[in-house]
Design a protein around this nucleic acid. Structure first.
Length: 1117
RNA sequence: GGGCGGGUAGCUCAGCGGCUAGAGCACUCGCUUUACACGCGAGGGGUCCAGGGUUCGAAUCCCUGCCUGCCCA
């Protein structure tokens, strides 16, 4: 391999190197984490589990950000000598993936999943998963992610599946998983319950229907109508206006009249003046004939006319309200709550496919049979018609209503009563345990957790800290977690069920229960199984009830059996011999994700996982790396995932490690919440808006390092990342800002057809919305963002600085004595001391930024030290001397190595490439005082494991070098200012006149003089006054002047320049004087502050004097 | 409805008690200065959302209002 710097091309071309560098890392096994080195105490662990991307689709820019930040942390810690584990993997994403595959199946084959059958369909989804898992892994590799790819897991693979079985079993055994009837969001199209986060809301034009319900006395066997006369007698306001002998009614307002058949009450606000008169009365539902009570509940909105406060009056519903609310507990969340409060009956009137049905918990159908079989929409019309026909429809008014839709099917979601499995997360050992995990400083309510410093209570910290509040409040108001999903793709719920009737000779008898093998389980003799029993009313009863032989009555039970899954035998027997069936549902995806920091490391049985995967090191993973170091994720994930991982880790590992259930280790010590990537309009990037940028496109055009650096640079603590999206012209390859329009939904999007340089193309929005079809003349254009130029330019800068450095190292040169190479105190050249000082400072800033998860701060510090310090000043400063000084070349090399290392976490490819050339050249150079690299894996290592720069106290504390070099920089800047203002060409040889003996001695010192001449483009520095025309250099006090700027000084330019200098100085003098003349300032401000102000004023006054006299000398002052 | 952010240069953002308020991009001027035009040097550009308060001193802390985004109900 030739490392001749001359052969490196002028510009950094990422595609020339990235693939090869990935190979270098792989061959070196650089990302392989060894739990043995942790167990032996050789290295400290640093572990991160990837938030597993969904196998639904390829990675987007949000993933790119998320994974870049993780990689920065992992690579930095690996460089620092930690045993770094980054656990990769993917998530099966139940509903999302199933929906994608179902849609494709329909589009391509016009088949539904039922046409294939469960097994064949799951196979299809599995094939999809294989495809996307591979693509995602490839993408991660292209991004340079240093995951331990050999350990890749999938939430449904064998290792993870065992964890799911074990977790479910333990929670079921401990009574923390139960079956409950609850209202769920029901998607009638997919016929499944969907989670809140799988829904979206939309406002639609709707109507309020006003239905009259006849008031009755609920007499056993008969309902006696209430007349208006009687109502008037009870003090019902306005009752007297109705015919006295006619039946009275109340009017309910509803947007869903079709559900009236499932009403089980009418509610009135207790503050409503009519409430008292209705107390004890009922209403009779027309057609159905059901008599339901009038109840009082303050949830009911008072009509506008009765509102007591402004707030009540302003309730948008007040305008539509009648004060009477039909209560349908089975079909409305709020009604469900009212039903719970008043112990109301629950009637379900809908079948799973969204039709009116009397087969799902509705027995008193009566004349309402006319509605059965209709869809909900048809039923609404029919109900309205029937009420109208009976004179019971008072009116209909238009109303804008918010409806909830299913994300996947776009169907209107129905609140639906259904049997579901729940995790009792409200248990103290789960939700409360999660909150106890918070570090005491981040806990609200003055509840200081003890035990900080350990792995359990108080061991978890959020960055930024404010998110701890989100976490804590979530658990304070948490509700039990519905974990069953009516899907085929996922972990099948490991519960076997059979309804048994016991007694009166029915089968099975208690003896037969014994024959099933369940008696031992029930009696606790078989540890691997648990039986739960519910009676006909759904109440849980002791399982031993099944074994009672002497039952006098026939008893019906639902029997649920769960095994730990270690032996499939008993389950098979239940199915094949005992008539049990496995629950058809699957678990919520988050159930398996919640186990991720455990399951990926082999829990519950690492040794078994090790033998099954053929990877012996798996046996030690869990012990070495859980708790992990940090979880990097986005805001909304706090409630969905962080919470659940915390609860499960603490509960399950708590049991294993003897700390107690719920008192176990936290899954991660730190939780870092990062920003969300938005488009230039502050909208979420989404497929349908066509405003997404594909990370792989950016890697192709700008390189992986450039993308990573840019994302890192944007990752600030408070702001979401706003990224204006440009369009990549497929003809010219140039990026341009698209013409934007507002679409029908009110989103700002790129116009479907774009024009650039006279050619037309289709934007991503055009393609996504179908509003424009790409053709060969008018092709589709990809999205990009000019933001990424920042990273590309920076990578190129680092590349060229490296090229230049390498060429200097190759040229070498004869020693040219002390001279500029080393004439300062301590023997080292000023520029070298300064550069090391800056490096030490930058390394300190970077370490601090990373330990606080301030990624933008890291990127900025890096950018400054590379570009400003190293390139603009150091490299320029040493040009004349470095050829003659091996010591300076050594410092140069050590500086570049430091920069490569500091940059490596965010720009792994380019730094590794340069390192290949730099490393062999280090051997022949002298040691550099105060700079060493620690934590590396020795000579010949790739950069990614070559150690981290550490600077000695002498370098860190070398403030003198900082001050002196800064003085040179000030003078040089002043000289350059004059040159620019006077249009002096770079090659023009100019002369700097130092003002007096003292300063000329400074500027005349060999080393300083070289710097000033080199950096300022000065030919000669002299303490002689100018013989010919000259101009003032504004530097400290005294007459620094420049001559030989031109054949004649441009008096006009000089006057303009000086006037500006004077004006600027006068402004600052006014500010400083004002501050000093404030009497409170001198008295109360710190003395050093006051002195600093005085010094600044003196300096400014001195400089303004020089400038004024120069103006006067020009004849203009 | 509850909670959490943000409003600083044309754009994207730093700064979060004291430098004459900064960076990158964009803009202006000059430059084939042999590492880099994905560059070098110089420059223009800001009543730091509005109003009140605390302070010797506020972009920065507190209060109120306006606008805007997100999370949870």
């Amino acid at each position: 391999m030739s490392n001749q710097a001359a052969e490196l091309p002028k510009a950094y071309r990422p595609s020339d190197h990235e693939e090869r560098v990935r190979g270098v890392w792989e061959v070196a096994g650089a990302f392989r984490a060894d739990p043995g080195r942790v167990a032996s105490g050789e290295r400290r662990p640093f572990a991160v589990v990837i938030p597993p991307p969904n196998v639904t689709a390829r990675l987007h820019l949000g993933h790119a950000l998320n994974n870049t930040l993780q990689d920065v942390l992992v690579r930095a810690h690996r460089l620092m000598g930690f045993e770094a584990l980054w656990m990769p993997g993917t998530d099966h994403a139940g509903i999302a993936t199933q929906a994608v595959v179902e849609r494709r199946l329909w589009e391509e084959e016009k088949k539904r999943r039922h046409d294939l059958g469960r097994e064949a369909f799951v196979e299809r989804v599995g094939a999809w998963k294989d495809d996307y898992e591979r693509q995602i892994t490839d993408q991660l590799k292209l991004m340079g992610c240093s995951c331990d790819f050999g350990r890749q897991r999938f939430t449904m693979d064998g290792v993870c599946a065992r964890a799911v079985r074990e977790a479910f079993f333990r929670l079921f055994r401990d009574g923390l998983i139960y079956r409950g009837k609850r209202l769920v969001n029901w998607d009638p199209a997919l016929q499944t319950a969907v989670a809140d986060d799988e829904c979206f809301e939309e406002e639609v034009e709707s109507k309020f229907y006003y239905l009259r319900y006849p008031l009755v006395h609920d007499r056993p066997g008969d309902a006696e109508p209430v007349t208006w006369d009687e109502l008037a007698g009870r003090g019902f306001p306005g009752a007297g206006e109705h015919p006295a002998d006619q039946p009275a009614w109340v009017t309910v307002a509803t947007t869903r009249p079709e559900t009236y058949v499932a009403d089980t009450a009418v509610a009135v606000n207790p503050h409503d003046p009519r409430a008292g008169a209705l107390r004890g009365l009922s209403v009779e539902l027309p057609l159905v004939g059901r008599v339901v009570p009038v109840v009082e509940d303050s949830y009911v909105v008072l009509p506008e006319a009765l509102a007591r406060t402004e707030e009540e009056k302003n309730d948008p519903k007040a305008r539509f309200a009648t004060g009477f609310l039909k209560v349908t507990p089975a079909h409305d969340k709020n009604d469900w709550e009212i039903g719970v409060r008043h112990r109301l009956a629950v009637v379900n009137m809908m079948s799973p496919d969204g039709r009116v049905s009397d087969a799902h918990g509705w027995t008193d159908v009566g004349d309402a049979r006319v509605f059965v079989g209709l869809t909900m929409v048809e039923a609404r019309e029919k109900v309205v018609a029937e009420f109208r026909a009976r004179g019971l429809l008072e009116k209909v008014t238009p109303y804008r209503q918010t409806l909830t839709y299913s994300d996947r099917s776009k169907a209107v979601v129905e609140p639906y009563l259904s049997d579901q499995w729940y995790v009792r997360v409200t248990d103290e050992r789960l939700a409360a345990s999660a909150n106890r995990a918070l570090t005491p400083e981040q806990r609200g309510g003055g509840v200081g957790g003890a035990g900080a410093g350990g792995d359990g209570d108080g061991a978890m910290t959020f960055f930024p800290a404010r998110y701890a509040k989100t976490f804590e409040q979530w658990h304070a108001g948490i509700r039990d977690w519905c974990i069953s999903r009516q899907l085929w793709w996922g972990h099948r719920i490991p519960v076997w069920h059979r309804r048994v009737t016991i007694g009166r000779g029915e089968s099975p008898s208690a003896g037969e229960i014994g024959a099933m093998g369940l008696d031992r389980v029930i009696r606790g003799g078989e540890a691997g199984g648990v039986v739960r029993v519910r009676d006909a009313e759904g109440r849980e009863v002791p399982a031993a009830e099944l074994l009672r032989e002497d039952a006098a009555n026939e008893r019906v039970f639902d029997v649920y059996v769960c095994y730990d899954g270690n032996d499939p035998g008993p389950e098979r027997r239940l199915e094949q011999e005992c008539g049990f069936t496995q629950d058809p549902d699957v678990l919520d995806t988050w159930f398996s994700s919640a186990l991720w920091p455990m399951s990926t490391m082999g829990w519950p049985d690492p040794a078994r996982a090790a033998s099954e995967t053929g990877d012996p090191s798996m046996a030690g993973l869990l012990e070495a790396f859980n708790p992990t170091s940090v979880l990097c994720t986005a805001r909304e994930i706090i409630t969905l995932w962080v919470s659940r991982m915390t609860m499960f880790n603490r509960y399950l590992l708590g049991e294993d490690r003897g700390a107690g259930k719920g008192a176990g280790p936290v899954p991660f010590r730190h939780v870092y919440i990062h920003a969300v990537v938005q488009d230039g309009e502050g909208q979420k990037m989404s497929k349908s808006l066509g405003n997404g940028v594909d990370p792989i496109d950016i890697i192709q055009t700008h390189g992986s390092d450039a993308m990573r650096f840019t994302l890192c640079h944007m990752a600030t603590q408070t702001q979401d990342v706003r990224m204006p999206v440009d369009i990549l012209d497929p003809f010219s390859g140039e990026a341009f800002a698209p013409k934007m329009i507002t679409n029908a939904q009110g989103a700002r999007v790129a116009a479907p057809v774009q024009e650039h340089k006279g050619r037309r193309m289709v934007s991503s929005y055009g393609v996504a919305s179908g509003e424009a079809r790409p053709t060969s003349e008018m092709p589709a254009a990809k999205n990009t963002s000019s933001k990424f130029d920042l990273g590309r330019n920076f990578a190129n800068k680092l590349w060229n600085a490296s090229r230049f450095t390498l060429s200097i190292l190759d040229r070498g040169g004869a020693e040219v004595g002390a001279g500029a190479g080393g004439s300062s105190p301590g023997g080292a050249a000023l520029a070298d001391r300064w550069m090391k000082h800056r490096l030490a400072r930058a390394a300190g800033e970077i370490e601090a930024a990373l330990s606080n998860y301030e990624f933008a701060g890291y990127a900025q510090s890096l950018y400054r030290v590379v570009w400003d310090d190293f390139c603009d000043w150091y490299l320029e400063a040493i040009k004349p001397t470095v050829g003659g000084s091996a010591a300076q070349r050594a410092t140069l090399a050590a500086s570049l190595r430091s920069l490569l290392t500091l940059a490596h976490p965010v720009m792994p490819f380019i730094t590794e490439v340069v390192w290949e050339s730099l490393a062999p050249r280090l051997a022949g150079l002298p040691a550099v005082d105060g700079v060493r690299f620690e934590g590396g894996r020795g000579d010949g290592s790739p950069l990614c494991v070559s150690g981290w720069p550490r600077f000695g106290a002498g370098v860190m504390g070398d403030e003198a070098a900082g001050r002196e070099f800064d003085r040179v920089r000030s003078l040089v800047t002043a000289v350059r200012e004059v040159r620019a203002q006077h249009g002096v060409l770079p090659k023009r040889k100019i002369t700097l006149h130092a003002p007096d003996a003292g300063r000329s001695v400074w500027a005349g010192k060999e080393e300083i003089g070289v710097l000033i001449r080199t950096l300022g483009g000065v030919e000669t520095i002299t303490d002689q006054g100018p013989g010919g025309p000259s101009v003032l250099v504004s530097f400290e006090s005294g007459e620094w002047r420049l001559s030989d700027l031109a054949d004649a000084v441009d008096a006009g330019a000089e006057e303009a320049r000086l006037r500006k200098v004077v004006a600027d100085l006068e402004r600052s003098i006014a500010t400083l004087r004002g501050r000093l003349s404030n009497p409170g300032y001198a008295e109360r401000a710190p003395a050093s502050m006051v002195q600093q102000t005085k010094d600044q004023l003196a300096k400014a006054e001195s400089e303004v004097d020089s400038a004024r006299s120069a103006l006067k000398a020009l004849g203009a002052g």
